[in-house]
Every structure is written in structure tokens, then in C-alpha cells.
């Protein structure tokens, strides 16, 4: 291998009921690049094995059934618990890992939390020029060389499987402080976000989609989820939060945004 090696790669991994796509350019040969990506994907699967509530024998399923406690489980469960707790406080209670049935369901952060760790692994292994798409949430490495990859399309608030699927708009994160965008909405999985504050935890139907940019993927993801639960008042709320910008689509199809979002539209 010479120092000039550039191997273009694209890998799609199915995990957590969705897909993770890693694509970019590696300074290693084909085999070593694939090996690094495979190791990163193992981080995703390990998180899935630990936190999936769809797998009856996962530590989290056992926790939900009351068969074990956080103290007896791998330290990573405690880590996620604390992270969810911190996010609940940071979002003024609009993000919560407690289900309407009052069980602990951190799926809201596990996907992007694991994806972030997978991306970090790849960077540390020496591949620094790539993007990751974690089931619709996008992360960009800060050494991304391709201009087109700095531009992220936001899906219309309808399922990508629908014939009417398409692009709502495109933003350009090059030369900004942002490396991540997450979108929450009801287009793909129905109204699956609960409102931690309403008596029956049903989220209001004022918004159909919220997209948030942040420097960090988990931050973008959590705020998108929290804003969706909060409804239209989140426009005002998120405007006061440092380090994020957001675009909202209301049920009637109108757009709203935080003050700095307009500067991000692709030219």
C-alpha cells in the first residue's frame, strides 16, 4: 500500500430494523477498508443485542420484564440510562426514555448513539473522509472532501416507499459548525413518538416532521424527537437552544424554522 491509496467504498448494513450506510474514501486497500467497516458494524449489532426490545432475551427486555436490574447489567446500560436522563433534563422534559407504560425504552437514542460510536471507530482506524446514514439520520466526517456529500436532502414528510416520495429541500453544511442532521416524523413509522408531558402521552399532531442539525448526531436526534413531541411550540423552544438549528413541517404542510436555518439552504 502506498500513501496515495484511495479506495472508494460504500457499505450498507441492516441492523435495528433499519439500514446504516457508510460511504466515502479510505486510505487503505479494499480488504482492510472492509475490515474496518465490519468492526464498526459490530458496534451496531452489539448495541442492538443489548438494547433491543424486539429481542426477548436482550438485557433490556429482561430489564423491562423486571428480571434484572440496571446494576446487574453491562455498564453500557447504565451509561445509556444516564444519557437519557441528562437529555430529559436538557430538553425540559420533552425527550424521555420512559414509555407510556413506564418502562425504560432508550431506542430513541440507541440508534444514533451506536452509530456515532461506529463512526468514531472508523475515524480512529484512519478512515477520515466519509459519511454515514443511520436510517435517515446523517453524519458527516469533518474531513469530507466531496462537496456534494456536504449537501443533505431532507425527505418530504411522506414515506420514501411512497410513489410521491421526494426531496423537500437541500441544505449545505460545508463551512458550518454542523456535522449531523436528524429527522423525526410520522412518515415512515406512523405516530410512534410519545409526548412525555401529556396525560396519555399522545403526541400532538401539529407537526409531521422536524429536522435538526447539530455538531453531534445524538444531539440532533434527541432534539428532533423532543421537538416532534412538543409540537409547534418547539419552534420557539429550539430557537433558544445553542448549537442547533431546525426545520419544521406542520400538518398543513407549512414550514417553520429557527432563525439560523435559512442560512443553511443549498445555493
Amino acid at each position: 500500500m502506498t500513501s496515495n491509496t484511495v479506495t472508494a467504498f460504500e457499505h450498507v448494513e441492516v441492523c435495528m430494523g433499519t439500514t446504516f450506510r457508510f460511504a466515502g474514501r479510505s486510505p487503505f486497500g479494499e480488504a482492510e477498508t472492509q475490515n474496518v467497516i465490519a468492526q464498526a458494524c459490530e458496534i451496531l449489532h452489539e448495541a442492538d443485542r443489548t438494547f433491543s426490545l424486539y429481542k426477548p432475551e436482550s438485557p433490556l427486555s429482561r430489564l423491562a420484564r423486571g428480571e434484572t436490574s440496571v446494576r446487574e447489567l453491562p455498564p453500557v446500560v447504565d451509561e445509556i440510562w444516564n444519557e437519557c436522563d441528562a437529555w430529559q433534563k436538557a430538553t425540559d422534559g420533552w425527550f424521555s426514555a420512559m414509555t407510556p407504560q413506564n418502562t425504560f425504552d432508550p431506542s430513541g437514542v440507541v440508534k444514533t448513539w451506536a452509530a456515532k460510536r461506529a463512526a468514531e471507530y472508523i475515524v480512529q482506524a484512519g478512515i477520515e473522509d466519509f459519511t454515514m446514514n443511520a436510517g435517515g439520520d446523517v453524519w458527516l466526517s469533518n474531513k469530507l472532501t466531496s462537496d456534494v456529500e456536504w449537501r443533505i436532502a431532507i425527505s418530504k414528510p411522506i414515506s420514501i416507499a411512497s410513489p410521491d416520495a421526494g426531496v423537500l429541500t437541500v441544505i449545505d453544511l460545508k463551512n458550518t459548525d454542523y456535522l449531523a442532521m436528524a429527522t423525526s416524523g410520522s412518515a415512515e413509522r406512523g405516530n410512534h413518538i410519545w409526548d412525555p408531558k401529556s396525560p396519555d402521552k399522545t403526541a400532538p399532531n401539529e407537526l409531521v416532521q422536524v429536522s435538526v442539525v447539530a455538531n453531534d448526531l445524538v444531539t440532533a436526534d434527541v432534539w428532533a424527537t423532543a421537538a416532534f413531541a412538543e409540537g409547534i411550540r418547539a419552534v420557539e423552544h429550539l430557537n433558544k437552544i445553542e448549537g442547533i438549528e431546525a426545520l419544521f413541517v406542520s400538518a398543513s404542510g407549512e414550514l417553520a424554522a429557527t432563525d439560523g436555518f435559512a442560512a443553511l439552504f443549498a445555493k
Binding site: 436510517g135 446523517v138 449537501r151 436532502a153 425527505s155 429527522t183 416524523g185 413509522r189
Partner: peptide, 10 residues
């Protein structure tokens, strides 16, 4: 664009 953000697709 080089990427697409949307609600978590299956």
C-alpha cells in the same frame, strides 16, 4: 446532494 435525511425508515 449526497445524502438523505428522513424519519427512520425500515
Amino acid at each position: 446532494f449526497g445524502n438523505l435525511s428522513g424519519a427512520t425508515f425500515s
